[in-house]
Design a protein around this nucleic acid. Structure first.
Lengths: 240, 240
DNA sequence: TAAGCTGTGTTTATCACATAAACACGGAGG
DNA sequence: CCTCCGTGTTTATGTGATAAACACAGCTTA
């Protein structure tokens, strides 16, 4: 069991609430986080160990602890940093376009930092960037005046879908053939009629590897559902 | 870096394709998996170590390796087992009800085995139960004859949302107050106008802790979106 | 039925990691 | 100049996965 991830301490790093900027210091939380992200980008979260990061920076593992409390904190900081600045509002484009673009941008973040989906998120560490992303999605939804729309609920639903779709897509990316084999071997038509028909005999690898389309499609349906609730019988147009 | 999770080997355990049932053996993969699930239910995935499980069963850690290859395999087996049998088809109830019920059942699985959302899913290990769950969702969708509906895409989208919503709900459950504090401290109205308005000053803890509603709501919208594509101008009814 | 083979569990050992504790060194303040 | 503190280092501990060699019980076969 890992040590008791202290959320308050973590928050202080995430929001740069540290007490003093310190003096003659070579290392800093920011450089550590940056290196850790670089390593994770290249080798996945598994490649990030205190020793490894220290080594990359030319220090010893224990040196890092002067700046980051513990590994959980480091990972939390990496995470929030990796999300980066949330997309700027684009009211002019209309709410649908804005939300679709939001989802696409988030998808790109996961492509750029695949390890984000591996981050064990025990005790949701909500950092500034993560919050800003959420805000950027909630705003257009909130301005919508759709009957009985639960903004937080929808926003959570959507963020969740994006994250998990990204996770699956990245996993398949990494492990396509093995996955396809197992499936091919066991996907018999009696037990799984629908799936075996849909996947056909070609195996699903190619179709499912890029979940971008699934995201677009699901999102589209969801937005159609929202549009239904807008005032005035404004018919949902065909957005294909 | 953990050892190279061999999917073929894992598959053999998941699908019980093992070569021989073996002879005079006290331990077995099934007992090991069962104990591991029990431990995980009680203490989370972090509580599951080879030593721990062995100890529970009255053996040494290395003894387990005669039956499970490695820890990744064990976890994969735990996972598929924990999902349990997929819900039986209920065509009579209509497709909406069937899908809503599917989501609810899956949500319950996550409540029963919270560690499922912690499972690091590198290289999607598709076991029989997982596949059956997916089939149970894909079937009603596939029978739907909705214009341009990407069944696999929607099914993936929905499963993803359920899993990740469950993850978030469980995390908040575990860590509510700390989370609320951080939020309360940093959620200023200038940077996050929408969020701070929606959350109000009460803090979001109570509202977001139970994501069941968010799931119901998002699902509802999604289904509305699907319903729009059904043949004949069959108007979506109000399912509140 | 005795000698070995094989399948099961054990002992021992290694290595990777996180992190605690004591220590060392260099500059800032008295 | 001496001392203290901040910053990084050395040393040490504990946990976990898992390799390798070993031990023992039955089954096999002669």
């Amino acid at each position: 069991m890992t040590e008791e991830h202290d959320p308050a301490r973590t928050a202080r790093v995430l929001w740069r609430d540290g007490p003093k900027p310190a003096t003659r210091t070579r290392l800093s939380a920011d450089t550590i986080v940056a290196s850790a992200i670089a390593v994770a980008d290249a080798e996945g979260l598994a490649g990030v160990s205190m020793q490894r990061i220290a080594e990359v920076l030319g220090y010893t593992a224990m040196g890092l602890y002067r700046h980051v409390a513990n590994k959980a904190t480091l990972v939390a900081a990496m995470t929030d940093t990796a999300y980066g600045a949330a997309p700027a509002p684009r009211r002019a484009d209309g709410w649908r376009a804005e939300i679709e673009s939001w989802a696409t941008e988030l998808w790109r973040v996961y492509q750029a930092h695949p390890w984000l989906v591996e981050v064990p998120t025990r005790s949701a560490p909500i950092g500034p960037n993560e919050l800003a992303w959420f805000e950027a999605l909630a705003r257009p939804l909130a301005e919508l005046d759709a009957a009985g729309l639960d903004v937080i609920g929808v926003a959570t639903f959507l963020s969740s879908a994006v994250r998990d779709l990204a996770r699956i897509a990245l996993e398949l990316d990494a492990d396509q053939t093995a996955h396809a084999e197992v499936l091919a071997e066991h996907l018999d038509g009696k037990r799984f009629p629908t799936l075996s028909r849909l996947f056909g005999h070609a195996g699903p690898a190619d179709d499912t590897a890029d979940l971008g389309p699934a995201l677009q499609h699901g999102l589209h349906l969801l937005l159609d559902g929202i549009e239904l609730r807008l005032p005035t019988g404004k018919e949902p147009e065909n957005h294909d």
